[in-house]
Structure formats: C-alpha cells, structure tokens
Amino acid sequence: MAEQTEKINVTIDGKTIAVDPGTTILNAARAIGGEVVPPAMCYYSSLKGSGGKCRTCLVEVNKGSEKDPRPMPKLVASCSTPVMDGMEVKNKTSERVNDARHGVVEFLLINHPLDCPICDQAGECHLQDLAFEHGLEKTRYEFKRRTFDKIDIGEYIKLHMTRCILCYRCVYTADQLTNQRDHGVMKRGDAAEISTYIQNALDNDFIGNVIDVCPVGALTDKTFRFRSRVWYTKPMNAHRDCKKCSGKAVAWMIGDEIARITARKDQFGEVKEFICNECRFDKKEKTDWTIEGPRHIDRHSVISANKYEEPIPEHTPLLNKT
C-alpha cells in the first residue's frame, strides 16, 4: 500500500506542494492558499458531483506530468481535474486564463439583474466578488435580460430565479439530503430554471442549507429578507444544544437582537457543518443561543474592498479572535 499514500508534487503559479494522488487542482491550490486559488462558483467540496459547470476555475496546464510533459491543449476546470505528479499549472499568471475568466464573468452577468442594491446577498455574494475582480466596468450586452417570477419553495425559502447562475449546488444539496428528486432543473439553455416538482414545498429538516450553498441571491431566507444589509449586522459565533445538528452556527446580530442564523463558512465560503431548519429559522432569541464571540469573516468581498484591505491595528486582535 506504500504507493497509495505517496504524495505527488504539483506546481501552481510557481508554488509547489505535495498532495495525495487524486486531489483536484483546485484543492491543491486551496492547500497552498492565497492568490493561487482559482475562484469557484459551482464547486462545493462537500457536495458529491458538484463542479465543472461555471467554468470560472479554468486553469492552464502547461506541463501535464513528469511522465508526459505535454501541455494540455484546452484550459481545464481545476475543480474536476486531478493532479498528476510533476504537473505545472498556471492560474493568475496565465493570460489565457485571465481572458477566459473575463469571458465567463461576462457571460454570468449578461442575464443577471444586477440588482445588488436591493439584494440580500450583496456583501457576501460570490458573483459580486468575482465581477469585482474579473468583470468589465460596463456591460456589452444590449438586450433584454431574462426574468422569472419569484416563487416560494417552502415556508422559509424564496427562490428568485432571475438572479440564479445555475451552479446546481442547491440541486445537489436537495438531492443528497432527501430521498426523492423533488428539486431540480427544468427546461434547457438560457431558459433553464431551478424549480421544485410542480412548485412543491421543499420539506426537509436540513433544506435551509440551500440558502447557504447558493453563491448568489437566488435563494434567500424569508425570515431575513429585506431586514438589513449584511454589513450592518455583526457576525457572532454561537451554539446551542440541538438534537438534529451540531448546533454550531453564526448569529448575525443587530444590537442585541439576532437578525439571522447561518451555518459557519470557511475561508472559501463553504459550509462544513450543515445546520437544521429549527436552528436556522426558529431560534431567533438571544436566550436560545450561547454567544461565543465575534466571528472572523474573510474580508475579500467588494463591500469591504476599500475599507478592510489591511486590518486596523488596534482592532486586529478582535478580528482574529474566532
């Protein structure tokens, strides 16, 4: 079994790391961290089958492996391409990658309503971040954008399909949480829409997590909709005894009140421990929760771009206290 545990080397933007065989380029890049991590709109490490769809994580492989050093002719989706020993990958240092990524961002935005000023996701939206980094200042699209009616899927969740970028994350979440396929994609091409089976309510104790996995504001929490901009709320680590889930969550506070509850996301915006609907939607009193302290949020988003690039020295200990 010695071969199986042997690490293999991969170089991304000049930085080399040893990883287990079978690791994807994206996860190798995340292990290195920092600038070399490609953005990902659809890949979600805990959801089986996710990835490969948004094409924002495209990278250039300029050396296939030690054995076969030929470069790969096309850009590859780093989230679904496994690394080979001696592989050399170019992410930000490649002109082709930057160009393709510009294209993908533009494609994602042409049918997006750009209603950030009234969108609850603004401030923690991955598409906003991506557009800020790679987008154009002005759109070249001069046609009518596609629109859909908003629908309620379940008591607490609002689906605003117009904003959706069809990453399929919520589809995989619902599929892997429930036994039947009651949430999926209908129609095709740019008419494709996320929907439930004849607008059924999604009925599952953990279904609220589709809100957290959504990279944009297509799925929002009806108990929080239009209550506050996220940057006016303070994220606090909180926990409670819950029979269904770990009970570890983030309470977003306005003053002494809990405005909303979400699961805890890591620096790549992914939830590792899903929380149940009861914790998320029903427990909004401060007495329900044990507040642990302020949560450090990775401030890379467009909202904080001008303010938080360098942590303010006197506040640094507080920000890092998690």
Binding site: C54, R55, F107, I165
Partner: peptide, 14 residues
C-alpha cells in the same frame, strides 16, 4: 444548449 455550463448557456443566446 443544455444550460449546464455558463459560456455555452449565455454565449449562444447572446
């Protein structure tokens, strides 16, 4: 277009 990946879904319509 099946609408799965962004360049084809949005680009062909454009």
């Amino acid at each position: 277009s099946c609408g799965q990946c962004s360049p084809c879904r949005e680009g062909t319509g454009w």
